[in-house]
Design a protein around this nucleic acid. Structure first.
Length: 469
DNA sequence: TGAAATGTTGGGGCG
DNA sequence: ACGCCCCAACATTTC
């Protein structure tokens, strides 16, 4: 039997349900259709991920055929040309991902082309989990408790034995897609930090479980430390699946080399990813609208100057600026700092969370529709199980708590490199002498705060009053 | 997966 | 010695 495998957010060979199914039923070929609306940073990652996957597939005689256009046209047409017996794929749990899948299925059914979809993206099939009232969970803790207690996670699939079949279809050339930035090449330093592809994903998981996970609880909150898994971009592109992470971690716990408490905490972060996608399936409007409808009336303000300063890492709050610059230079930001910069944008700057979400979408290598949506709504206070709106992060205190010595700040904001720990999170409080010695001239080498913290906080609370019952 | 404001307590200075 | 006040230090409430 000949199968066409449509690859999507599952750019891997191991534990890939659709690919495994195809391989178990004979020979196959693979196709990838360029999705619409990718962020700029994601395009960089995608280029390298596709290139790496194509190479792995090629060694088994399987081509990764690249196509552009409407999936429900491209795939059925390709299936006919290749004269396959069936088309298979893994589902993408997002409103547009599911819509595209439905459309394709309908077309294939009309064509009487056998087809089948699988779950390789999530531990939990979102449509199968409900609370005692029969509705979808809206709070993470009970959701995850329920999942951990009731779900049985199947073992990972065996590495498939791939076999291609000959054909004469020509796909696009990856280079012609122009996914890589040219001038300016803002991705210049990305390769110093990342290795896209399935191999890089597994290396990351192994080194995390071998050396970092046992300090995860606690360590993960300190951005200067390398204590997180950094698997997010690999997960976003499906170079590794949550099931593989789950079993590798459990194996570590059972074998005694992964501390159970830390391991479970790490897996609960995988749980947040599950929860985010779960929410998107049950509440598809989340992508654009606040989960808490009251926030439709929130007096968000148009603040182009503040937004621009935020994007460039020029807010005058060192921890915020460090985060935004880390994001720009590496395509990534430490999670603790993501919360701080999101709070600053939505609260101190009263800027709509969608503005932040769009910026993250474009600049993050791990941009993921579920995580991005749920997390921005969480930070803004309007999401499911969100931080209450009045929980306003103080960027000075957060910096002093999580980057006391300013090690992280100095890495990304070098112009503050000589400032003492005492003032590193509030340079405007340093005396003229101290600033001189550190070669800082406020207002020229580094900005004054663009919003006064106290005023920002009070402004946010006043705005919140307007939508409170 | 906060922070600030407000309330309470208890030790010590001081008349 | 006593009462009063001040104010850390901690706890609770509020945003």
């Amino acid at each position: 039997m000949k199968t066409l495998v449509w690859l999507r957010e599952d750019l891997r060979i191991e534990d890939n349900a659709a690919l495994h199914f195809a391989a178990a039923n004979g020979s196959l070929q693979a196709v990838y259709v360029l999705p619409e609306g990718l962020g700029e940073a994601s395009r960089w990652w995608l280029h390298h991920s596709l290139s790496s996957l194509a190479q792995s597939l090629e060694s088994d005689g399987v081509d990764l055929i690249l196509k552009t256009g409407r999936v429900s046209h491209v795939i059925p047409k390709l299936a006919r040309k290749l004269d396959v017996d069936q088309v298979v794929w893994n589902r993408v749990y997002s409103p547009s991902g599911m819509e595209i899948g439905r459309e394709l299925k309908e077309q294939l059914n009309n064509d009487e082309m056998p087809n089948r979809s699988f779950n390789a993206q999530l531990l939990i099939e979102p449509g199968k989990v409900f609370n005692k009232q029969g509705g979808p969970f809206k709070v993470f803790t009970p959701f995850w408790r329920h999942c951990v207690q009731t779900m049985r996670i199947d073992e990972c699939l065996q590495t498939p034995e791939l076999e291609g079949f000959s054909h004469s279809v020509r796909g696009d050339e990856l280079d012609d897609w122009g996914l890589l930035p040219t001038k300016p090449n803002w991705a210049n330093h990305f390769p110093d930090h990342w290795s896209p592809g399935e191999e890089g994903a597994h290396k990351g998981l192994r080194s995390f479980l071998a050396a970092k996970v046992n300090a995860y609880n606690g360590g993960r909150d300190f951005p200067a430390q390398d204590n997180t898994s950094k698997l997010s971009p690999h997960l976003a592109f499906g170079e590794i699946g949550p099931r593989q992470i789950w079993h590798a971690t459990q194996e570590g716990i059972n074998g005694g080399w992964v501390d159970a408490e830390h391991g479970r905490k790490f897996l609960s972060e995988i749980g947040w990813r599950e929860f985010a996608r779960y929410l998107l399936v049950h509440f598809p409007h989340l992508v654009r609208d606040p989960f808490n409808a009251r926030f439709s009336e929130f007096p968000w303000q148009d603040q182009p100057k503040l937004v621009s300063a935020w994007q460039r890492g020029q807010t005058g709050y060192p921890i915020v600026d460090a985060g935004m610059r880390e994001l720009w230079q590496t395509g990534y930001m430490h999670n603790r700092v993501r919360m701080i910069v999101a709070s600053f944008l939505t609260k101190h700057c009263l800027t709509h969370w969608q503005v932040g979400m769009d910026w993250f979408w474009d600049t993050l290598l791990d941009a993921d529709i579920g995580n991005n949506t749920a997390s921005w709504q969480w930070a803004a206070g309007c999401g499911a199980d969100a931080a209450p709106y009045f929980r306003i992060f103080n960027p000075i205190l957060q910096g002093e708590k999580f980057d006391k010595q300013g090690e992280y700040i100095k890495r990304w904001v070098p112009e503050l490199g000589k400032l003492s720990a005492k003032y590193i999170n509030k340079p405007w409080e340093a005396g003229a002498n101290e600033l001189d010695q550190a070669q800082i001239k406020l207002g020229s080498t580094y900005p004054y705060p663009i919003v006064d913290h106290k005023q920002g906080r009070e402004g946010a609370l006043a705005a919140y009053q307007q939508i409170k019952k």
